[in-house]
């Protein structure tokens, strides 16, 4: 059976070089606008950046995928169409899309362009996946982070299409692309603007020795002295339900599925994805290197080394997330 493909994030050309040098098989990235789901200030690629980065990556036999995975705005489809056109023109190896209308456009306009279905489309069952494959010729599905490994195995046994799963990084406890929590608090959403809990609406305020984070004026968390902090992402906040303040949705924690490589392999997963286009190149280099080492060991039948990524993770804790049933 084929080796796992390692799919790595890049928010800047420097991060792309770091990912390539650390052993990525493919790098995914987005343009510098609302067409991608990591539309953060100072991040992402101009057309020229993309051209240069593709040249750099291809020279080293590394693929480049362009995420155009927000939902185009009604009455304003042109930026999304241009993004697909430019990715095709600059010879990106695939585009990662979520919107039905945009998939339709890409399939009709660029029949030679390889289409991947973004996690933002949240295709969680065989029927949905078949639809994307048959209607648009989608070649690979990035699975939503709501499925257990046995469910992934069943899916792969049923539908003939490549699957890609997240193995490391930030973890959405909600079905991706179906969440308006951010826009409820701030007016800006992952689906529309490509941002979740945007920094523009985040404030940190010291409260004595504690640190409070607010989003759109709502208090998302209060960290005690010395307590590890997390992103001020709404679903990773601490809230009061039944008179108890707790991490109601998800603790500030990072996904790390390195221990599940054998199970993911038996489940028929084709590619493993690292989250974090918004993270710095130091993070990307360290995580990609660790996974490269682990995948090489796994492919050679050697024991997968224990690699310490603790320093990189949010809240200082790691989880296998939805891949194991207990998470639910």
């Amino acid at each position: 059976m084929d080796r796992f493909e390692l799919i790595c994030p890049a928010g800047t050309p420097a991060a792309l070089r770091a990912a390539v040098e650390a052993g990525a098989d493919a790098v995914y990235l987005g343009f510098r606008d609302e067409t991608n789901a990591r539309n953060f200030p100072g991040l992402n690629f101009t057309r020229q950046d993309l051209a240069e980065s593709i040249a750099f990556a291809h020279a080293r036999r590394v693929q480049v995928f362009v995420a155009i995975n927000t939902y185009p705005e009604a009455g304003n489809l042109a930026p999304w169409h241009r993004a697909v056109d430019d990715a095709a023109r600059l010879k990106a190896d695939a585009v990662i899309l979520a919107d039905l209308g945009l998939l339709d456009y890409a399939a009709r306009t660029h029949p030679e362009l390889r289409l991947h279905l973004s996690v933002q489309a949240s295709a969680a069952n065989a029927e949905a996946i078949r639809l994307y494959r048959d209607a648009f010729g989608v070649r690979r599905i990035v699975l939503p982070r709501v499925l257990t490994v046995p469910e992934i195995a069943k899916l792969n046994a049923e539908v003939d299409v490549e699957t890609e799963v997240f193995v490391f990084g930030g973890l959405c406890p909600m079905a991706e692309g179906r969440c308006s929590l951010s826009s409820y608090a701030t007016g800006l959403s992952p689906n529309k603007q490509g941002v979740c809990s945007p920094a523009s609406h985040v404030r940190y305020e010291p409260r004595g020795k504690a640190l409070a984070s607010t989003l759109g004026g709502f208090t998302i968390n209060v960290f005690g002295e010395g307590e590890n902090a997390g992103y001020p992402t709404l679903c990773k906040g601490r809230f009061v339900a039944r008179d108890t303040a707790a991490y109601l949705f998800e603790e500030p924690t990072s996904l790390n599925a390195m221990d599940l490589l054998p199970e993911l392999k038996s489940a028929g997963v084709r590619a493993l994805k690292i989250e974090g286009r918004q993270r710095g190149k130091a993070y990307i280099g360290a995580v990609v290197r660790a996974y490269r080492e682990a995948l090489d060991a796994f492919a050679a039948g050697r024991p997968v080394p224990r690699i310490d990524l603790q320093a990189m993770v949010e809240g200082g804790t790691q989880t296998t997330g939805a891949y194991t049933r207990a998470w639910r």
Binding site: P41, G42, A199, S200, P206, A229, G230
Partner: peptide
């Protein structure tokens, strides 16, 4: 981010400005 999680860095004021600067310099 990792520094921030560990509370070794603290930030105040316009968070988006810091994120933009960080991303720009990190690039």
């Amino acid at each position: 981010d990792a520094l921030f999680f560990r509370r070794e860095l603290s930030i105040a004021g316009d968070t988006a400005l810091i994120v933009a600067l960080r991303n720009t310099l990190d690039g």
